[in-house]
Amino acid sequence: MSETYTLSFNIKAMDFSAAGEASSTIKKVLMHLGMPPSVIKRAAVCSYESEMNIVIHSYGGTLTLSIDSSQVIINAIDIGPGIPDIEKAMEAGYSTAPEEIKEMGFGGGMGLPNIRDNADILEITSSSAGTNVKIVINIGG
């Protein structure tokens, strides 16, 4: 099937009042498209964590959702310092978030591990200019 739906969001750095809005919209989109409950839940977690990563760790970026009949793809692209050690960032509880963010209850070091646990494919490329995270969730399985 060639039909694809795409939707992009601009995510601002450190804007906690709007944080989470993109992922709520993404969840609604998935419900409109009749996605199975497990896909909705996994995509909700992945999009939320990616959105928060952009808010907390970058200078801003975009979150793009694309869906066709076989998969949900979430692309999180940001401009920022990048992830110095991806392997470490994948460890549960490892966080580079500043103290004041942690005090707000964010930056618990669970973002990327949660994404990994919920994604079928996770590709991360990062440099000192920014980070690209590509998440694929298969609809069939």
Partner: peptide
């Protein structure tokens, strides 16, 4: 899903 995408658009 094709039609749903159309409607969502």
């Amino acid at each position: 899903i094709g039609k749903a995408i159309e409607k969502l658009t």
